[in-house]
């Protein structure tokens, strides 16, 4: 089925330029993905010698986490558990008007049009989102058994693709869901125990320095997460953070760090 749509797309030439919504008429087909519809728009714009709409994308299978923007105010659009690259046009109808805007968060400055800079996420991981193990020093993989339910829960958290939808959807632009996913993933595994408290303390400190807001338990993040990361991981984050803060103070008082 063919459909005619009106797109209002955020156009912004660069980080320092001011942006505005520009309207485009587009003819789409129900089998297209949302990004393929934008490809068609960009072909038309290129044909007219105009600047195509810039948007991030890569795998188009919902796993790399590159893509993502707001469609009518909802991160990744109306279909739950779906990145915008896996969203197909059959979920829209002829005559729809759609507003496309980049993630809006102080920690994610706009680069161009729908592209934002999510480098802050890399810096959060760099601050402590890892287990320190040099190649060659690992014990046999089966030397450390992990209860299946812990491994499964760790995997639930580890599925985060780092797209940034949680931050964009949060009224506080908090990175708590992203942080909690990594803190829970590593904190649930025996391999992650030695650095568990240090990790959460450093990652939260980094988040505070990156202009992410605080979590006030609103839950928008969970609603838009394309990988169904659950808000209960934020409870784990908070518990670990509280414990880490407490122990850290004690350590500092006794002449520690």
């Amino acid at each position: 089925m063919e459909m005619n749509l009106t797109l209002h797309v955020w156009r912004q030439a660069s980080a320092s330029a001011s942006g505005k919504l520009v309207a485009y008429k587009i003819r789409a087909n129900e089998h297209m993905s949302f990004l393929e519809m934008l490809d068609v728009l960009n072909e038309e714009l290129t044909g007219r010698g105009e600047d195509p709409v810039a948007f991030d994308h890569d795998c188009r299978e919902g796993i790399c986490g590159s893509c993502g923007f707001m469609i009518n105010g909802i991160a990744h659009g109306p279909l739950p558990g779906t990145t915008v690259c896996q969203l197909h046009m059959r979920h829209f109808k002829n005559g729809d008007e759609l507003w496309l805007e980049p993630w809006r968060a102080a920690a994610f400055p706009v680069v161009k049009d729908l592209v934002v800079d999510r480098g802050a996420f890399d810096r959060l991981i760099s601050a402590g989102g890892y287990i320190s193990v040099a190649p060659g020093s690992a014990p046999d993989a089966n030397a450390v058994p992990v209860p299946k339910k812990d491994a499964d829960l760790a995997m639930d958290a580890a599925q985060c693709i780092g797209c940034g939808a949680c931050v964009a959807a949060c009224p506080n632009a908090s990175a708590s869901l992203f942080l909690s996913a990594k803190v829970s993933h590593l904190g649930l595994l025996p391999q992650g125990q030695p650095e568990r408290l240090e990790r959460v303390r450093k990652m939260v400190a980094q988040a505070n320095g990156e202009m992410f807001g605080s979590c006030t338990n609103i839950g928008e993040c969970e609603a838009v997460c394309p990988k169904h990361i659950r808000i209960e991981f934020i409870a784990r984050l908070n518990r670990d953070y509280l414990k880490a803060s407490w122990l850290y103070r004690k350590e500092a008082a006794s002449g520690g760090e």
Binding site: V133, A138, A141, V144, P145, K148, Q191
Partner: peptide, 14 residues
């Protein structure tokens, strides 16, 4: 496999 398990890769388990 040893290296990845030590890094915290959540492999499927029995």
């Amino acid at each position: 496999i040893d290296q990845c398990a030590a890094q915290g890769v959540p492999f499927a388990r029995e």
